[in-house]
Design a protein around this nucleic acid. Structure first.
Length: 281
DNA sequence: ATGGCAGAAGCATTCTGA
C-alpha cells in the first residue's frame, strides 16, 4: 500500500499536476496540505472519477487539508479532539484548518499542516509551539486507544541539521530551532518513527525548495515534510522516498511529495534481519 | 543584509507563506 503526503500550495492551481502524479504513481492514500479552498469549491470530481474517495477540511485562501483514498476513509474527524493533556482550550485552533484524521485499512491516518511560525520572535511562533503541543496530546490519546498511527504532512520543522542544505546559516532560526525540534520530538516520543530515516541516514535530501533565489536549481532545500509511523508498523515498511520530480514542473508547488510503501499483506516480513539495523535510529 | 517568488483576494496592492 502506497501512502503519500504532498503540500500542493493550492489544489486549484496544481490540480492537473496532481492528477498526472496520481496516474504515474498510483497511490492508495494521498494526504494534501495547503489546498486553499473552502470545501464547496474543492474539485471532488477530478479524484472521484479516478475511483478515489475524498475527505476535505478547508478554508478560504489559507491552510486546508484533504485525504484522497482508494479505500473509503472511516471515522473522519476534522481538527483536534480529545487532547486531554493539553491545558489550553483547543477551540483556539479551530479557525485554521490544519488537521484531518481517519481510519483506513486499520491505520489511523493523521494528516497535518503544522503552522510555519514566521520567525522565532513572532506571535505566530508561539502559536506553532502550542499547536505542536496540542498535537502531542492528540497523538497520545490515539496511542492510549491502541491505534496504529501514520502521522504525515508538512511539519515546517527540519528534524536535524542533516535536513537543511546550509544548517550553519539557519542555525536556531525558524524550522531549525531547538524549541521546534523538542516540540516535534514530544509528538513522536518513542512511539513514532521517521520512515525516511530508516532508509537514508545522510545529508542532502529535501522535500521543500524556496521559490526564490533559484533554490531548486541550486538544490538548496529543506526536509520538512514527513511520514511518521507507529513502531508496530515498522515491520511492514518497504520503502520511504521523496519524489522531487514534480518540483521541476512548470508552475510547481514549492514542496515535493513524500511516500512510503507498506506491505500489509505479508505479516512475516522480518524487519530485524541479519543485514539490516533499521530501528537503530 | 536584504529581497527575492508564488497564491488568493480582487483589480492595486496587501497578506501569508517558509
Amino acid at each position: 500500500m502506497l501512502i503519500a503526503t504532498w503540500n500542493v500550495n493550492s489544489i486549484r492551481t496544481r490540480l492537473s499536476q496532481i492528477i498526472e502524479w496520481i496516474n504515474n504513481v498510483n497511490p492508495d492514500i494521498l494526504c494534501l496540505q495547503e489546498t486553499k479552498v473552502t470545501d464547496d469549491c474543492f474539485p471532488f470530481e477530478s479524484f472521484e472519477k479516478l475511483g478515489f474517495s475524498v475527505e476535505v477540511y478547508g478554508q478560504k485562501s489559507y491552510n486546508g487539508v484533504a485525504i484522497i483514498s482508494k479505500i473509503k476513509a472511516e471515522n473522519v474527524k476534522k481538527g483536534f479532539y480529545g487532547c486531554k493533556d493539553y491545558g489550553q482550550n483547543i477551540e483556539i485552533f479551530q479557525d485554521q484548518k490544519r488537521l484531518i484524521s481517519a481510519d483506513i485499512n486499520g491505520i489511523k491516518i493523521i494528516n497535518v499542516y503544522v503552522p510555519n511560525g514566521s520567525s522565532i520572535e513572532s506571535d505566530k511562533f508561539e502559536y506553532k509551539i502550542n499547536w505542536l503541543n496540542c498535537l502531542a496530546s492528540f497523538v497520545e490519546e490515539q496511542e492510549k486507544k491502541g491505534e496504529i498511527i501514520c502521522l504525515m504532512g508538512d511539519f515546517n520543522v527540519a528534524p536535524s541539521n542533516l535536513d537543511i542544505h546550509d544548517p550553519k546559516k539557519y542555525e536556531g532560526g525558524i524550522m531549525a530551532s531547538e524549541l521546534e525540534r523538542n516540540a516535534l520530538n514530544n509528538v513522536l516520543k518513542e512511539r513514532l518513527i521517521d520512515s525516511f530515516r530508516i532508509f537514508e541516514k545522510n545529508y542532502g535530501h529535501w522535500s521543500w525548495w524556496d521559490y526564490r533565489n533559484n533554490a531548486y536549481e541550486l538544490n538548496k532545500g529543506w526536509r520538512i515534510d514527513h511520514i511518521y509511523i507507529s513502531r508496530g508498523l515498522s515491520s511492514k515498511l518497504k520503502s520511504s522516498v521523496i519524489d522531487s520530480s514534480p518540483r521541476a514542473n512548470l508552475r510547481p508547488s514549492d514542496h515535493a511529495p513524500v511516500m512510503i510503501n507498506l506491505n500489509l499483506d505479508d505479516t512475516n516480513l522480518d524487519f530485524f534481519d541479519d543485514e539490516d539495523n533499521f530501528l537503530e535510529i
